[in-house]
Design a protein around this nucleic acid. Structure first.
Lengths: 208, 208
DNA sequence: CAAAACTGACTGACCGGTCAGTAATGTAGC
DNA sequence: GCTACATTACTGACCGGTCAGTCAGTTTTG
């Protein structure tokens, strides 16, 4: 057994371990307040080793953001293309899948991180906007379109609806990485998401 | 005319000017990345002067948070106690009033700031939670209670409902101080809030 | 023993915080 | 009104600690 022993040379596992540690610290402390020595220590290496794999603190930040979110996005897009039932259940499935894959994992800290650091990294913000936000919104737009065409949903202002759908799950994730760790209570995430969906689907539905 | 001339001694106006400048920088850059020299310069004084009014960077931070939010909160509480009509219109009035007094002003950056820095300032987070979040939630709880008792609203899980009501306006404010300044588009805030209220009130309503 | 992975002491820039000094304002005496 | 002195708001050069980034040297591996 030597998988996570110290003082081993494991070139290929280092980047992922360093990025995981960096995400932890960035989310908890912010970019500027994070010390690379701490990140390296948590990943089980020295600061010098970090610089063998990432050219600078900023490059580490970009890497953390970029490879943290793309997998989950692709999952969502295949979910949309394969789904057979009505738009209601598709919307529900997307939200709950997001929670399982992103919201409830360390990746759930990325929205908070991106929001906090957008001002300091305009190019990363731009990248995140185009590669993540635009794609998520387009995904939800297609779901709403499907629901409206099938007569399930009322034809409200679509762009606003998308944001209203997104806000509560995002706030849930942000909350978990900001005030909850300081002991400011939050009830069960599942109950919260279910109430959101209940309220949302009821609000969207055509009255019979 | 000498009100905002430089090199004047204006002891009593300094604290407010310094806090306004500090809020600007903290919201845009984050606490750690904000340089006090920049804050002082923007307020039209030198760094030394800042230290005549605030004992340290952290005390400046606390002052910015504390006196930024309490006035608006009191306004909301008097609105609740004086309102006469149904719960629907009260909820609507509260949201729109918040937008006018907080969301659309520089104070709207405080939620973003608090979220980003909660990990670095547990005591401030605690204070913010108890003095702001708990009070806002209790305010909304009373509104929902009133609506349920009057037969206007369905009796869903109250605590979750409160958070679902809060999330979209909060995200709107957060958005304005994170990605929008980087040129990532957002449509009209009023349209967004109205859709939120429409969706929400429809979702809450008892079906006849 | 050669190459590759890794280390940690070191450097230099940066910034929070200090304080001796400066300039504006107030005031008293003429 | 003017001058002399006291008070107080304000300044900015400086100090010391911190940390991103470097690199000469050490350890592991083939």
């Amino acid at each position: 057994m030597s998988t996570s022993d110290s003082r081993q040379r494991r070139k290929q596992a280092r980047p992922a371990e360093l990025m995981a540690a960096a995400l932890d610290h960035f989310v908890q402390r912010g970019f500027a307040a994070t010390r690379l020595e701490d990140v390296a220590t948590q990943a089980g290496v020295s600061k010098g080793t970090l610089y063998l794999y990432f050219g600078s603190k900023e490059m580490l930040f970009k890497a953390v953001i970029q490879q943290g979110i793309l997998p989950a996005l692709e999952e969502g897009e295949t979910l949309l293309s394969q789904h057979q039932g009505d738009a209601r259940s598709l919307l529900q499935a997307l939200v709950l899948r997001w929670w399982a894959m992103v919201g409830s994992t360390p990746l759930g800290g990325i929205p908070k991180l991106m929001i906090a650091e957008a001002g300091n990294f305009p190019e990363v913000a731009q990248y995140y906007y185009e590669q993540v936000i635009v794609r998520i919104r387009s995904l939800l737009r297609r779901v709403l379109q499907r629901g409206i065409e099938a007569g399930e949903f009322r034809p409200l202002d679509m762009e606003s609806c998308i944001d209203v759908i997104l806000a509560p799950p995002l706030m849930l994730a942000i909350w978990r990485y900001s005030l909850v760790p300081q002991g400011c209570g939050k009830q069960d995430p599942e109950t919260y998401l279910n109430t959101h969906l209940e309220l949302l689907l009821n609000g969207l539905s055509v009255r019979e």
